[in-house]
């Protein structure tokens, strides 16, 4: 069954039909073996120094191979219109592979995800070492989540994976564990942005992120190993990434090699880079603007060209307030932004 169970979210008849048709067709194409065909056809264009003179199209090299994944449906999915796969996999902030939104897709196709080593360490009774295959061992669910970028655009993306809590419970956090620190792979040979500040934007690498333990254990906090029914492509954070749907996208760290349970609030990359603009919590909050732009609304990217996406009001906690607001009871969210 492909249709998601209905939630208390607004949805129009058209949106559901659209999604169902789109989704069935996706699955069909996938079953027929047309994997990746759509992304091969999608052309790219960026605005760079030389774009005024050149087309900005990049040559299509060998494509990264994604494998199909089977998963069960999740009651946590939204029924809103999904973003087209070509957009969600062609428009990424992953500075390790370049600053432009289409750079990650263009530059990451040769990225090696197998072998992989993910360690869960620190204040735990049973430290874990997961290899590539172990990442896919827990039962996989599909969760269609809203993703709200701090840059005021958003998408609706079907992730495949499992709650982070599944992994953390296996490791058995000790009573000393109060926060969880995450780290992206550091490999400048494969991730050109890490070795070159012009490509990587001059932020400090490896990328690090963090959550409070109760946030990390929350059932909505998800470890994704796939998207659109397939293993993750490198530009979306292969082979394993975090997805925290009520926080701005930059919290959802990609290509994770380290998860460490710690006592103190860990440092986080964007907070180090610009502490007045990006806080540790980074909860989606329409009332607290970014110093340089409003967060009250967002442009929802679904599919189609210029003029096809709508500007919609941003919801508190990205619409997941019912499930997560309790985590922040009594906290001043303007101070802890």
């Amino acid at each position: 069954m492909l249709l998601k169970s209905k939630q208390s979210y607004d949805l129009t008849e058209a949106a559901v039909t659209d999604e169902a048709v789109f989704y069935n067709r996706r699955r069909l194409l996938q079953q027929m073996g047309f994997l990746g065909a759509g992304s091969l056809l999608a052309s790219s264009a960026s605005a760079g120094l030389l774009d005024f003179f050149s087309s900005g199209d990049k040559p299509a090299g060998p494509q990264f191979q994604q494998a199909p994944l089977t998963s069960i449906r999740s009651p946590y999915s939204t029924a809103e219109t999904m973003t087209a796969e070509s957009k969600a996999t062609g428009h990424n902030n992953f500075y390790e592979f370049g600053l432009g939104k289409d750079d990650p897709k263009a530059n990451a196709q040769g990225f090696k995800v197998n072998p992989w080593q993910l360690t869960v360490s620190g204040a735990v009774n049973k430290p874990l070492q997961l290899d590539y295959d172990a990442l896919f061992a827990p039962e996989l669910e599909e969760r269609i989540y809203r993703l709200r970028c701090v840059e005021a655009w958003s998408m609706v993306i079907p992730w495949v994976g499992y709650p982070l809590a599944t992994l953390l419970r296996q490791a058995e956090p000790t009573s000393a564990a109060r926060y969880v620190a995450f780290q992206t792979l550091h490999d400048p040979a494969q991730m050109p942005g890490q070795g070159n500040r012009f490509l990587g934007g001059g932020i400090r690498y490896p990328y690090i992120e963090g959550l409070r333990l109760d946030e990390a254990m929350h059932p909505l906090t998800f470890l994704a190993v796939g998207v659109y029914g397939k293993t993750l492509p490198p530009q979306n954070g292969a082979p394993v990434r975090l997805v925290v749907p009520w926080k701005y996208g930059f919290k959802s760290i990609k290509s994770i090699v380290g998860i460490k349970l710690v006592e103190r609030e860990p440092a986080t990359t964007w907070n180090i880079s610009a502490p007045n603009e990006y806080g540790f919590y980074a909860n989606v909050n329409p009332q607290v603007d970014h110093p340089r732009w409003s967060q009250a609304s967002e442009r929802r990217i679904t599919r189609g060209g210029l003029g096809s996406d709508e500007r919609i009001p941003t919801q508190m906690f990205n619409g997941y307030g019912e499930a997560v607001a309790d985590l922040y009871a009594g906290m001043n969210l303007r101070k802890y932004f």
Partner: peptide, 29 residues
């Protein structure tokens, strides 16, 4: 170049977010 970028934008050939792409292109232009 101006007509071309609008053509690419309306026909969804300006990447994942044609809106930002066209704002950047015309700004740099």
């Amino acid at each position: 170049f101006l007509l071309r970028v609008y053509y690419l934008g309306f026909s969804d050939q300006l990447g994942g977010d044609p809106v930002k792409a066209i704002i950047h292109f015309t700004g740099i232009g």
